[in-house]
Nucleic acid binder design. Sequence first.
DNA 1: TAGATATATGAATAATTATTCATATGTAGT
DNA 2: ACTACATATGAATAATTATTCATATATCTA
Lengths: 131, 131
Amino acid sequence: MKEKITDFCEICTCVHKDVVERVKKESLSEELIYDIADFFKVFGDSTRIKILYALLGGEMCVGDLVESLNMTQSAVSHQLRVLRQNDLVKFRKEGKAVIYSLDDEHVNLLLQQSMCHIIHKKGADLYEERD
Amino acid sequence: MKEKITDFCEICTCVHKDVVERVKKESLSEELIYDIADFFKVFGDSTRIKILYALLGGEMCVGDLVESLNMTQSAVSHQLRVLRQNDLVKFRKEGKAVIYSLDDEHVNLLLQQSMCHIIHKKGADLYEERD
DNA sequence: TAGATATATGAATAATTATTCATATGTAGT
DNA sequence: ACTACATATGAATAATTATTCATATATCTA
């Protein structure tokens, strides 16, 4: 079962032809791969998580976000744009104010789920040393 | 309902005291915020997504991953470390080979869910222009 | 134990991205 | 139309992170 499949890799001889072929066949398109990574990337920033978590409690105007999160207006606004571009938040205008809210239930779900996961993992780590 | 809450922000007058206070009160600890962001950050890289997706089909040794994904052994190994450190993959040794697999169902779930979300969103975008 | 192979890793570089600063846009009230 | 305010944005800088290259570690075989 351990045999060299082609000559395009000069260093690895530990190659299982069947596995490699299956994976290559079933691989996602480069485009989808990048889309998925980009999607997660949006959640992978503490500023954006703060904003999203704040919006879990309901819609907020930019000024309130700035106050609540102790950040500059510019930083918040830049990150809101990223969230907007990725359809994680939507907004409506009310006079001079722009009021943001979470775009759909997916966001809500993902946030909750990840928090569960992390708290669970942290907990498990904490109690790992017992007996 | 629109009133200045404190004097620590010199530029924003659009501040809803009640909202700001609630958000501040309900805010997550900085530590948890960073943990959540870091968790997502791990998924936010196309190389790691490729590896994780390949492992959805079953356990694989490093060499097979290198072959399947057309990447250098070093790059794969570095990213496997990140995945290991974040408990997304586990491994066992078999002779010289190190065989990796997904660590738990959470990973599986998150990947599937995100793909659904993205495909759905893409689809929606594609058909958006119709009347 | 020596040599070969599979994987891991440190350091340097390259690429990506968040924040800041300055300024622009848009809206409301006078 | 003018002023003030709320938000957005371009450009520069700072910070983070992925990849590469060279080399180290670990395991098997002779």
